[in-house]
Protein backbone atom coordinates (compact mmCIF):
# COMPACT_ATOMS: atom_id res chain seq x y z
CA UNK A 1 0.00 0.00 0.00
CA UNK A 2 2.65 2.45 1.09
CA UNK A 3 4.82 1.52 -1.87
CA UNK A 4 1.86 2.17 -4.12
CA UNK A 5 1.31 5.66 -2.81
CA UNK A 6 5.02 6.44 -3.04
CA UNK A 7 4.91 5.32 -6.65
CA UNK A 8 1.91 7.55 -7.29
CA UNK A 9 3.64 10.57 -5.78
CA UNK A 10 6.63 9.75 -7.98
CA UNK A 11 4.46 9.66 -11.10
CA UNK A 12 2.78 12.93 -10.17
CA UNK A 13 6.19 14.55 -9.68
CA UNK A 14 7.33 13.27 -13.06
CA UNK A 15 4.13 14.59 -14.64
CA UNK A 16 4.57 18.09 -13.25
CA UNK A 17 8.37 18.42 -13.33
CA UNK A 18 8.94 19.89 -16.79
CA UNK A 19 6.21 22.52 -16.52
CA UNK A 20 7.35 23.43 -13.01
CA UNK A 21 10.96 23.77 -14.20
CA UNK A 22 9.99 26.20 -16.94
CA UNK A 23 7.93 28.24 -14.49
CA UNK A 24 10.90 28.25 -12.10
CA UNK A 25 13.20 29.47 -14.88
CA UNK A 26 10.75 32.29 -15.57
CA UNK A 27 10.74 33.35 -11.90
CA UNK A 28 14.52 33.04 -11.77
CA UNK A 29 15.03 35.24 -14.83
CA UNK A 30 12.60 37.76 -13.41
CA UNK A 31 14.58 38.06 -10.18
CA UNK A 32 18.13 37.75 -11.48
CA UNK A 33 18.00 39.01 -15.03
CA UNK A 34 16.17 41.97 -16.38
CA UNK A 35 13.16 40.83 -18.44
CA UNK A 36 11.94 43.25 -21.06
CA UNK A 37 8.18 43.43 -20.23
CA UNK A 38 7.24 43.67 -23.91
CA UNK A 39 9.12 40.51 -24.76
CA UNK A 40 8.46 38.61 -21.54
CA UNK A 41 6.49 40.21 -18.72
CA UNK A 42 7.20 39.20 -15.12
CA UNK A 43 5.14 36.50 -13.40
CA UNK A 44 3.69 38.98 -10.94
CA UNK A 45 2.60 41.29 -13.75
CA UNK A 46 0.87 38.41 -15.52
CA UNK A 47 -0.83 37.38 -12.27
CA UNK A 48 -2.06 40.94 -11.64
CA UNK A 49 -3.42 41.26 -15.16
CA UNK A 50 -5.09 37.88 -14.90
CA UNK A 51 -6.78 39.01 -11.67
CA UNK A 52 -8.10 42.19 -13.19
CA UNK A 53 -9.21 40.48 -16.43
CA UNK A 54 -11.16 37.94 -14.42
CA UNK A 55 -12.50 40.69 -12.19
CA UNK A 56 -13.88 42.63 -15.15
CA UNK A 57 -15.27 39.44 -16.62
CA UNK A 58 -13.43 40.18 -19.87
CA UNK A 59 -11.52 36.89 -20.09
CA UNK A 60 -14.59 34.89 -19.25
CA UNK A 61 -16.59 36.49 -22.04
CA UNK A 62 -13.99 35.86 -24.73
CA UNK A 63 -13.47 32.35 -23.46
CA UNK A 64 -17.18 31.53 -23.67
CA UNK A 65 -17.43 32.93 -27.16
CA UNK A 66 -14.48 30.87 -28.41
CA UNK A 67 -15.69 27.72 -26.69
CA UNK A 68 -19.14 28.25 -28.18
CA UNK A 69 -17.70 28.57 -31.68
CA UNK A 70 -15.53 25.50 -31.24
CA UNK A 71 -18.43 23.43 -29.98
CA UNK A 72 -20.68 24.45 -32.87
CA UNK A 73 -18.11 23.68 -35.56
CA UNK A 74 -16.91 20.57 -33.77
CA UNK A 75 -20.36 19.07 -33.30
CA UNK A 76 -21.14 19.48 -36.99
CA UNK A 77 -17.74 18.03 -37.91
CA UNK A 78 -18.12 15.11 -35.51
CA UNK A 79 -21.65 14.15 -36.51
CA UNK A 80 -21.02 14.46 -40.24
CA UNK A 81 -17.60 12.84 -39.93
CA UNK A 82 -18.95 9.85 -38.03
CA UNK A 83 -22.02 9.29 -40.19
CA UNK A 84 -20.23 9.75 -43.53
CA UNK A 85 -17.20 7.83 -42.24
CA UNK A 86 -19.36 4.85 -41.37
CA UNK A 87 -21.11 4.92 -44.73
CA UNK A 88 -17.87 5.27 -46.68
CA UNK A 89 -16.15 2.68 -44.49
CA UNK A 90 -18.91 0.19 -45.18
CA UNK A 91 -19.15 0.71 -48.92
CA UNK A 92 -16.24 0.06 -51.26
CA UNK A 93 -18.10 1.95 -53.99
CA UNK A 94 -18.64 5.03 -51.87
CA UNK A 95 -15.01 4.92 -50.85
CA UNK A 96 -13.77 4.82 -54.44
CA UNK A 97 -16.24 7.55 -55.30
CA UNK A 98 -15.08 9.95 -52.57
CA UNK A 99 -11.45 8.95 -52.07
CA UNK A 100 -9.77 11.29 -54.56
CA UNK A 101 -11.60 14.38 -53.35
CA UNK A 102 -10.93 13.59 -49.70
CA UNK A 103 -7.25 12.96 -50.41
CA UNK A 104 -6.99 16.27 -52.30
CA UNK A 105 -8.73 18.43 -49.73
CA UNK A 106 -7.27 16.82 -46.61
CA UNK A 107 -3.72 18.22 -46.95
CA UNK A 108 -4.92 21.82 -47.38
CA UNK A 109 -4.48 23.50 -43.98
CA UNK A 110 -7.75 25.11 -42.89
CA UNK A 111 -5.92 28.43 -42.58
CA UNK A 112 -5.41 28.44 -46.33
CA UNK A 113 -9.19 28.47 -46.62
CA UNK A 114 -9.53 31.78 -44.79
CA UNK A 115 -9.50 34.07 -47.85
CA UNK A 116 -12.06 31.93 -49.61
CA UNK A 117 -14.20 31.67 -46.49
CA UNK A 118 -14.22 35.45 -46.12
CA UNK A 119 -15.28 35.80 -49.76
CA UNK A 120 -18.04 33.25 -49.37
CA UNK A 121 -19.32 33.99 -45.90
CA UNK A 122 -18.07 37.51 -45.16
CA UNK A 123 -16.56 38.02 -41.74
CA UNK A 124 -19.58 36.91 -39.74
CA UNK A 125 -20.08 33.92 -37.47
CA UNK A 126 -20.94 31.35 -40.13
CA UNK A 127 -17.55 31.70 -41.83
CA UNK A 128 -15.75 30.98 -38.56
CA UNK A 129 -17.93 27.99 -37.82
CA UNK A 130 -17.30 26.68 -41.32
CA UNK A 131 -13.55 26.99 -40.83
CA UNK A 132 -13.71 25.17 -37.51
CA UNK A 133 -15.84 22.51 -39.13
CA UNK A 134 -13.24 22.07 -41.88
CA UNK A 135 -10.53 21.75 -39.26
CA UNK A 136 -12.20 18.85 -37.48
CA UNK A 137 -14.11 17.14 -40.25
CA UNK A 138 -11.40 15.49 -42.34
CA UNK A 139 -9.44 14.21 -39.38
CA UNK A 140 -12.56 12.64 -37.91
CA UNK A 141 -13.79 11.31 -41.26
CA UNK A 142 -10.52 9.61 -42.09
CA UNK A 143 -10.12 8.03 -38.67
CA UNK A 144 -13.66 6.68 -38.76
CA UNK A 145 -13.16 5.21 -42.25
CA UNK A 146 -9.89 3.61 -41.17
CA UNK A 147 -11.44 2.20 -38.01
CA UNK A 148 -14.23 0.57 -39.94
CA UNK A 149 -11.89 -0.74 -42.61
CA UNK A 150 -9.71 -2.34 -39.97
CA UNK A 151 -12.50 -4.44 -38.46
CA UNK A 152 -11.27 -8.01 -37.98
CA UNK A 153 -12.48 -10.06 -40.99
CA UNK A 154 -12.71 -13.10 -38.74
CA UNK A 155 -15.24 -11.36 -36.53
CA UNK A 156 -17.13 -10.03 -39.54
CA UNK A 157 -17.34 -13.62 -40.74
CA UNK A 158 -18.77 -14.72 -37.38
CA UNK A 159 -21.43 -12.05 -37.58
CA UNK A 160 -22.27 -13.03 -41.15
CA UNK A 161 -22.47 -16.72 -40.29
CA UNK A 162 -25.27 -15.94 -37.83
CA UNK A 163 -27.43 -14.27 -40.46
CA UNK A 164 -27.20 -11.03 -38.51
CA UNK A 165 -29.52 -8.26 -39.81
CA UNK A 166 -27.59 -5.34 -41.33
CA UNK A 167 -28.44 -2.69 -38.75
CA UNK A 168 -27.56 -4.97 -35.87
CA UNK A 169 -24.31 -5.85 -37.64
CA UNK A 170 -23.47 -2.16 -38.01
CA UNK A 171 -24.36 -1.10 -34.48
CA UNK A 172 -23.17 -4.11 -32.47
CA UNK A 173 -20.24 -5.25 -34.59
CA UNK A 174 -18.84 -2.59 -36.94
CA UNK A 175 -19.12 0.54 -34.81
CA UNK A 176 -17.83 -0.91 -31.53
CA UNK A 177 -14.91 -2.45 -33.37
CA UNK A 178 -14.09 0.99 -34.83
CA UNK A 179 -14.66 2.80 -31.52
CA UNK A 180 -10.99 3.26 -30.54
CA UNK A 181 -10.24 4.76 -33.94
CA UNK A 182 -13.35 6.94 -33.81
CA UNK A 183 -12.21 8.36 -30.48
CA UNK A 184 -8.73 9.03 -31.85
CA UNK A 185 -10.42 11.00 -34.63
CA UNK A 186 -12.63 12.88 -32.18
CA UNK A 187 -9.67 13.89 -30.05
CA UNK A 188 -7.33 15.00 -32.83
CA UNK A 189 -10.30 16.65 -34.51
CA UNK A 190 -11.01 18.69 -31.42
CA UNK A 191 -7.49 20.05 -31.23
CA UNK A 192 -7.57 21.08 -34.89
CA UNK A 193 -10.86 22.84 -34.20
CA UNK A 194 -9.08 24.90 -31.56
CA UNK A 195 -6.35 25.84 -34.01
CA UNK A 196 -8.97 26.98 -36.46
CA UNK A 197 -11.00 29.08 -34.03
CA UNK A 198 -7.92 31.02 -33.02
CA UNK A 199 -6.84 31.47 -36.62
CA UNK A 200 -10.32 32.68 -37.57
CA UNK A 201 -10.48 35.11 -34.66
CA UNK A 202 -6.98 36.42 -35.35
CA UNK A 203 -7.98 37.31 -38.88
CA UNK A 204 -11.47 38.66 -38.58
CA UNK A 205 -13.20 39.11 -35.29
CA UNK A 206 -13.79 41.51 -32.45
CA UNK A 207 -14.49 38.82 -29.89
CA UNK A 208 -12.99 35.57 -28.66
CA UNK A 209 -9.61 34.48 -27.36
CA UNK A 210 -7.92 34.84 -30.74
CA UNK A 211 -9.09 38.44 -30.94
CA UNK A 212 -7.98 39.01 -27.32
CA UNK A 213 -4.47 37.90 -28.22
CA UNK A 214 -4.25 39.88 -31.47
CA UNK A 215 -5.67 43.01 -29.92
CA UNK A 216 -3.30 42.81 -26.95
CA UNK A 217 -0.31 42.45 -29.24
CA UNK A 218 -1.20 45.69 -31.02
CA UNK A 219 -1.10 47.50 -27.67
CA UNK A 220 2.14 45.80 -26.60
CA UNK A 221 0.35 43.95 -23.81
CA UNK A 222 2.41 40.79 -23.87
CA UNK A 223 0.99 39.82 -20.47
CA UNK A 224 -2.50 39.60 -21.99
CA UNK A 225 -1.12 37.67 -24.98
CA UNK A 226 0.35 35.13 -22.59
CA UNK A 227 -2.87 34.86 -20.63
CA UNK A 228 -4.85 34.31 -23.82
CA UNK A 229 -2.44 31.60 -24.96
CA UNK A 230 -2.44 29.81 -21.63
CA UNK A 231 -6.23 29.93 -21.47
CA UNK A 232 -6.46 28.21 -24.84
CA UNK A 233 -3.96 25.60 -23.71
CA UNK A 234 -5.82 24.90 -20.49
CA UNK A 235 -9.29 24.76 -21.98
CA UNK A 236 -8.04 22.54 -24.80
CA UNK A 237 -6.49 20.19 -22.30
CA UNK A 238 -9.69 20.10 -20.24
CA UNK A 239 -11.82 19.28 -23.27
CA UNK A 240 -9.40 16.56 -24.33
CA UNK A 241 -9.49 15.08 -20.84
CA UNK A 242 -13.28 15.03 -20.96
CA UNK A 243 -13.12 13.13 -24.24
CA UNK A 244 -10.66 10.71 -22.68
CA UNK A 245 -13.07 10.08 -19.82
CA UNK A 246 -15.87 9.53 -22.32
CA UNK A 247 -13.65 7.14 -24.25
CA UNK A 248 -12.83 5.14 -21.14
CA UNK A 249 -16.47 4.84 -20.18
CA UNK A 250 -17.53 3.80 -23.68
CA UNK A 251 -14.66 1.39 -24.34
CA UNK A 252 -15.05 -0.61 -21.17
CA UNK A 253 -13.94 -3.90 -22.65
CA UNK A 254 -10.22 -3.13 -22.84
Amino acid sequence: MLEDSIKKVGYAAEYLALTAAILALWFFLDVHGDLNPVIMPSPSKVADTLGSLIGKGALWGDLLISVGRVLKGYLIAASLGIVLGILIGLSKHLERFTNLLVQLIKPIPPIAWIPLVILWFGIGESGKIFLIFLGGFFTILINVIDGIRQADPKLIEVSASMETPLLKHIFLMVIPSAAPSIFTGLRTGLSSCWMCVVAAELVSSSTGLGYLIMNARQFGRTDVVLIGMLTIGIIGKIMDSLLKVAEKSVIRWN
Binding site: K154, L155, V158, S159, A160, S161, M162, E163, T164, L172, M173, P176, S177, A179, I251, W253, N254
Partner: peptide, 27 residues
Protein backbone atom coordinates in the same frame (compact mmCIF):
# COMPACT_ATOMS: atom_id res chain seq x y z
CA UNK B 1 -23.82 -19.61 -43.91
CA UNK B 2 -27.00 -20.21 -41.93
CA UNK B 3 -27.81 -20.22 -38.26
CA UNK B 4 -28.97 -23.84 -38.53
CA UNK B 5 -25.28 -24.64 -38.84
CA UNK B 6 -23.40 -23.47 -35.76
CA UNK B 7 -19.67 -22.93 -36.15
CA UNK B 8 -16.96 -22.98 -33.49
CA UNK B 9 -13.53 -21.74 -34.52
CA UNK B 10 -10.11 -22.55 -33.15
CA UNK B 11 -9.75 -19.01 -31.85
CA UNK B 12 -12.83 -18.28 -29.77
CA UNK B 13 -13.78 -15.32 -31.98
CA UNK B 14 -15.89 -13.68 -29.29
CA UNK B 15 -16.61 -9.99 -29.78
CA UNK B 16 -14.28 -8.23 -27.32
CA UNK B 17 -16.80 -5.43 -26.72
CA UNK B 18 -19.63 -7.72 -25.66
CA UNK B 19 -19.95 -9.56 -22.36
CA UNK B 20 -20.32 -13.33 -22.28
CA UNK B 21 -24.11 -13.14 -22.24
CA UNK B 22 -24.20 -10.47 -24.94
CA UNK B 23 -21.90 -12.57 -27.10
CA UNK B 24 -24.14 -15.60 -26.75
CA UNK B 25 -27.26 -13.48 -27.29
CA UNK B 26 -25.77 -11.89 -30.40
CA UNK B 27 -26.50 -15.07 -32.33
Amino acid sequence: PAKERGMVFQEHRLFPWLTVEQNIGYA
